[in-house]
Design a protein around this nucleic acid. Structure first.
Lengths: 248, 248
DNA sequence: TAGTGGTCTAGACCACATC
DNA sequence: ATGTGGTCTAGACCACTAA
């Protein structure tokens, strides 16, 4: 017979049980109890652990799945999302070739160095005054044609040990590398997009004339707990590609 | 005692009950049984109508709510979504001023005329050879500064009677006007974004020098049944604004 | 107070994957 | 055969809104 459940926590402020469960699951994810790609315990198991019904656990997991923190697979289990096994790669890159076709880009690492962050970078990453950062620059090429020039800023502390050689060495998405090597998983991002004219070194690297209009994409990526951990400034040559966005 | 429910439809192919309910609800929305802004019947009522449990109706409504076709309001009911009463207006416009502040734009109608569609427009709107279109052009201004130049293409048939005078006359979002005047509601859209250089009339209208990099935003909007009903080509001056996008 | 959506439970059964 | 997620039900109670 359904009875009002005992409150799971003696919090004074009200929040639905499944939200509390969701919080507990998030904490376990954040704390590394289950790693990217691994299965989390079954719904029944979690229900027993938290002393709630399966339906309540289910609703919590449902929300985490729509937020892309978890992935459900019928018959197999529920897994921690990972950038390593994305469907078509590129979880966050919205670039598409104009002529319907798959996007397959080669990477060319330009440089990777540790430095004091410019003021705006430090502000975006919410860094204290003394913390340094790692700057990575790279090109993405379609065949021989450069399409994207990326400038990536990472806080040096959590990415300690990141070097050009190691970056070169890995296969697959950079975000997958961050997961396995540094235990940092990007869960969402905000982008600011504008148009600007190619100039100087950027124009040279992208092999376009000075003054060519480029898409400027500034992406701030967050891990668990809404903590910003990556600032990425991309210049996209949209001569043969476009940025695709679905509005729902 | 829970029993396997009788199949609601004698469809040979399997689909969950709540998906079938969702389909029926969508058909009612499409058919205009409930109009934008109106309340749909309560969950209990719908459950009785469809001879399923409230939970099943609930799940169907949940999905339609996350797709922004319906809006739930606790204690009041479930309502058909409308562009008329959006939170911050601008359901689809992702433009934001660089300095944190609200976006408030004036509209200036440039022209509105009926014509044979260019081939690419006809293709995008999936028009037969003989159908004509209405082209609307307008400016959006921040104070005295033009920020957006829109070129809007609509199939003439469903928008029969649309004139410059009527467009001028209405208040509120254009999409709200389309709902009340023509019974056409935009439910989702796809955008293709690129950078290009201002030229000719567009540069003049936006009051920028020739060659100024602009954001080109091509939006194809869909009504119920994934039917494309509007092609909008916007040129955004990103000198003091940017296109904001959240990646989840 | 009545009506609506929101939460929670318990249990049955289905679909899928694996052994 | 077993275990996982997925669907469906029936019923109780909570939170919010409006008369």
């Amino acid at each position: 017979m359904p009875e009002a459940q005992a409150p799971l926590e003696t919090t004074p402020s009200f929040s639905p049980l499944y939200q509390q469960i969701k919080g507990l699951l998030t904490r376990s994810l954040q704390g590394g109890e289950w790693k990217p790609g691994e299965a989390i315990p079954s719904e029944i198991e979690l229900a027993a652990r938290f002393k709630v019904s399966q339906g309540t656990v289910r609703k919590a997991i449902d929300e985490l799945a729509t937020e892309n923190l978890l992935v459900r697979r019928q018959g197999k289990g529920t897994f921690v999302a990972t950038h390593a096994e994305e469907r078509t790669q590129y979880r966050f890159l919205r670039l598409q070739p104009d002529d319907e076709g798959g996007l397959s880009l080669r990477r060319r690492l330009l440089d990777c160095r540790r430095m004091r962050p410019p003021a705006d970078v430090a502000r975006a990453l919410a860094l204290k005054g003394s913390e340094s950062v790692i700057q990575v620059r790279r090109l993405l090429l379609q065949g021989e044609q450069p399409v994207v020039l990326d400038e990536i800023w990472l806080p040096a502390a959590p990415f300690k040990g990141l070097t050009a050689e190691r970056l070169m060495g890995h296969r697959g998405p950079m975000y997958a590398y961050f997961e396995t090597e540094f235990g940092i998983r990007m869960i969402r991002a905000d982008e600011k997009i504008r148009a600007l004219a190619a100039a100087g070194e950027a124009a040279q690297l992208l092999a376009v004339p000075d003054g060519t209009p480029l898409l400027s994409v500034e992406r701030l990526s967050y891990t668990y707990g809404d903590k910003p951990v990556e600032l990425r400034r991309g210049l996209y040559d949209t001569a043969a590609h476009h940025y695709r966005n679905a509005l729902n």
